[in-house]
């Protein structure tokens, strides 16, 4: 990072940290959404952006983290429950990673989507059997606390993703993205790397899910296992440019703003406009905003 970029990042972080004292409740809600989506999309990009393994199952990690926090609410302190949610999500990714990451391309996309739905319905059935299909959570933190904690996770996700990209793991994942068989011929332990990156990309979404479950005193599983969360993550990454470190951040921030504008001005056309935006990027700018702005290689 250049000194100028470092100063800009520091200023942006300071400004983001001061948001609760600068804006009203509506602005804070938008800021919370932005921090949440940045944390989720950047985490997803650790595998999805670097190695181009498009997971449509990250909502499962988000939901599992939420479940850990909700079921341990007022039993475990939040500073324990949220990281525990991340660990459970990471452990789940590690467990399913070995078989799931044997397939690639569209098969991986469909498999991760299927696993997320499987987890959702497994949880719904268990909850139904226990007679606890919804829960009331008393004493949830205010939005300012949730925002600052989520902002911390977003910053952590950015740091982790940047470290991965600069590491041997990142180089190996780039080789996997370019050509998986050839990556093996240069000595990349592709199986281990993919599974580790998948688990790493699941930890922060698990923690974010834990925090987001506390946005309301009323909790039901369908909220946190909604597949639209996974679709939105992928859309944000594609729009921003998943292969570039800045892309997922840009995509998340842009779509949060666009979503708010559409909700406010054209609520009936909201999903249509988002769909058109996604199609437009896939067709005309598959590298996303950062890809379109990048200087073409000779």
């Amino acid at each position: 990072m250049t000194p100028r970029a470092g100063i800009a990042a520091g200023a942006a972080l300071a400004l983001a940290g001061a948001v609760p004292w600068l804006v009203g409740p509506y602005g804070l809600t938008i800021a919370l959404n932005a921090a949440m989506w940045v944390a989720l999309t950047v985490s997803w990009s650790i595998l999805g952006g670097t190695a181009a393994y498009i997971s449509l199952g990250h909502v499962a990690f988000y939901g599992l983290g939420a479940y850990v926090v909700v079921t341990s609410w007022q039993v475990l302190p939040l500073v324990v429950a949220v990281p525990l949610g991340g660990l459970v999500a990471g452990a789940f990714a590690l467990t399913i990673g070995w078989p799931v990451l044997r397939v690639r391309g569209p098969y991986f996309v469909i498999l991760t989507l299927g696993i997320a739905e499987l987890v959702k319905y497994a949880v719904l059935n268990v909850e139904a059997a226990l007679g606890a299909s919804s829960r009331l959570l008393f004493g949830v933190p205010d939005n300012r606390t949730l925002y600052l904690a989520t902002l911390g996770l977003a910053v952590l996700a950015i740091i982790v993703a940047a470290l991965v990209r600069r590491s041997r793991l990142g180089a190996g994942l780039v080789a996997v993205r370019e050509d998986e068989v050839t990556a093996e011929t240069i000595g990349v332990p592709i199986g281990r790397y993919k599974v580790f990156a998948f688990a790493l990309s699941a930890v922060i979404p698990g923690m974010v899910g834990g925090l987001m479950a506390l946005r309301s005193a009323y909790f039901e599983p369908l909220q946190v296992f909604n597949p639209v969360i996974s679709f939105t993550i992928v859309t944000m990454a594609v729009v921003g440019g998943a292969a570039d470190a800045r892309g997922p951040i840009l995509g998340a921030l842009l779509l949060v703003v666009v979503s708010e504008l559409l909700w406010a001005n054209a609520p009936q056309g909201y999903m249509i406009a988002l769909g058109v935006l996604l199609i437009g990027f896939v067709v005309f700018a598959p590298g996303g905003i950062t890809g379109a702005l990048a200087r073409p290689r000779p």
Partner: peptide, 15 residues
Amino acid sequence: VVLVPEGRQVFAGLT
């Protein structure tokens, strides 16, 4: 033991 695969298989998107 290092293999140069058939068809070159360079990483086309990298320099």
